[in-house]
């Protein structure tokens, strides 16, 4: 009984010790399967960007990156801020140029390079666009006129090309806007008391 079992075990052991005969094409098939499963260059790149991974950065480098990001945000915000209306550059438009007994001579200036005509209208000329035209100076685009005004507050605006109303970009707006086209205000100073 014992001998029969030993013989059986020997046979099984011999079978297991025998070398396995492999198909000659086995290696080729395995390598082909491996190559098929390997991701392409783009897939690897995408995986590099999308797969989470731990990132180790020193505090100094982290602060530098944050500062650079903040700088980019600030510069970008400034770049998209609204600017003046096309053709209008804010300059100190209404400026005292001389004093007389009757008041002050005030210079009104508007920078409007695209304009063909510019007129000054206000409570000092019955809002008549034909009475106070501005003259273009300084090589074009800068329009100005000098006008004597009596002391006190005055409301005014510019009329560009006979149809477009523009308040003075450098002066405060009047508190009232009854007709949908805001006016500017200038206060002409009087003599000292």
């Amino acid at each position: 009984m014992h001998d029969e079992q030993d013989q059986l075990i020997s046979q099984v052991a011999d079978e297991l010790r025998a070398p396995v005969a492999l198909d000659p094409a086995f290696d080729a098939r395995v390598m082909a399967a491996v190559r098929r499963a390997a991701p392409g260059r783009w897939r690897l790149a995408l995986r590099w960007w999308t797969e989470p991974r731990p990132l180790r950065v020193s505090p100094l480098v982290g602060l530098a990156c944050a500062a650079a990001l903040a700088g980019v945000v600030v510069i970008g915000t400034r770049a998209v801020q609204p600017r003046s209306a096309p053709g209008t550059v804010p300059v100190p438009a209404a400026a005292l140029v001389a004093s007389t007994d009757a008041g002050e001579v005030v210079q009104f200036v508007l920078v409007a390079p695209q304009a063909a005509t510019v007129a000054l209208v206000g409570d000092f000329n019955d809002w008549d666009p034909g009475r106070t035209p501005l003259r273009v100076t300084a090589g074009g685009g800068v329009w100005s006129v000098n006008l004597p005004l009596r002391p006190g507050p005055h409301q005014y605006a510019f009329v560009v090309d006979g149809k477009e109303w523009r308040p003075d970009p450098a002066a405060p707006r009047a508190v009232t806007d009854d007709f949908g086209a805001p006016n500017s205000v200038i206060i002409v100073g009087g003599k000292s008391t």
Binding site: V121, D123, W127, D178, F179, A181
Partner: peptide, 25 residues
Amino acid sequence: PIVDKVLEGMTKRASPDRIVAAVRT
């Protein structure tokens, strides 16, 4: 200032109703 307000409204081509309302205010 009332005459002035009317002139301003006319120059700005405001409607008559709007001019009268502004003058009343």
